[in-house]
Write a protein that binds this DNA or RNA. Structure first.
Lengths: 136, 136
DNA sequence: CATGGACCCTGTAGTCACTATAGGGTCAAG
DNA sequence: CTTGACCCTATAGTGACTACAGGGTCCATG
């Protein structure tokens, strides 16, 4: 005992690199359970909150949606369950990421070729504008 | 003359691959000028609208924001102006795209290694959950 | 003991680029 | 004259926050 730390929202924000408003937002959408309140009605977080919020932030950094994170947290609850469902969510997300990368690379190529054709004349003969304009 | 075509919103939507609601949205945010109205209060578009909307859609496909498109359209207006500013917007956007690709590729690597460590046991020993959880 | 400033509270509106719905009106074919 | 496809406006919802406004709390300093 004695190592139980309690944090107010600002301290939790600092500890997890999250904005205070974002923490309140996660509470509103039930990703974070509502914490106890102090005499002055301040939110009072414990280490379970810290762990859960860290998990959420890490998953967000990896691009999981809040919906996916909700599912992961639910799955993580039942430690006896097979982790197949966890794997499915992660792989599904990897697929999304791969698709986004491919889209952006295609776009990048096209954008690059459009820019490459600009000879810095005036707008009337600008190849960028032309490339965007409808086919005559 | 005689080739002047008039389109109602559904025909314009089909011609540009845009949803009807999206066209009305572009009008609301002043990207598309409000068209003339028919006797029955239907929007009536001409070829200038078709051209402008095609431009917008093409630029959207290339990932330009509506704000950037607004700027491009303003620039395209003045055909005598140097197209340097156009080039700046396009290059700025290319930079954003490059940054997004790099971010996603880094994320992809990390996600892939997290998934690679999952040995399909139960959740208690799931490496994916573990990788997301806070550092002990 | 009073005051100031850093922190906290709730509630609401704004962001981006749409998308969806409700509740109606118009038009052309059969 | 009815049916059904189309159109109209206005409003709310999406995701994931962010940014106020208008207050309350806490505590260190004078």
């Amino acid at each position: 005992m004695a190592t139980e730390k309690f944090l107010n929202i600002g301290a939790l924000a600092k500890a997890t690199g999250t904005k205070v408003e974002t923490i309140r937002w996660y509470e509103r959408v039930r990703l974070l359970p509502a914490p106890a309140r102090s005499a002055g009605n301040y939110r009072t977080y414990d280490e379970a909150h810290l762990g859960r919020l860290s998990f959420i932030r890490r998953a967000r950094d990896l691009g999981f949606s809040l919906e996916q994170i909700r599912a992961l947290l639910d799955l993580a609850e039942d430690r006896e369950r097979s982790c197949e469902a966890v794997d499915v969510i992660a792989r599904e997300h990897l697929g999304e990421v791969d698709r986004k990368i491919a889209d952006l690379q295609a776009l990048r190529l096209e954008l690059d070729s459009v820019i490459g054709q600009c000879h810095h004349g005036n707008v009337a003969e600008c190849r960028i504008i032309e490339a965007l304009a409808p086919p005559k």
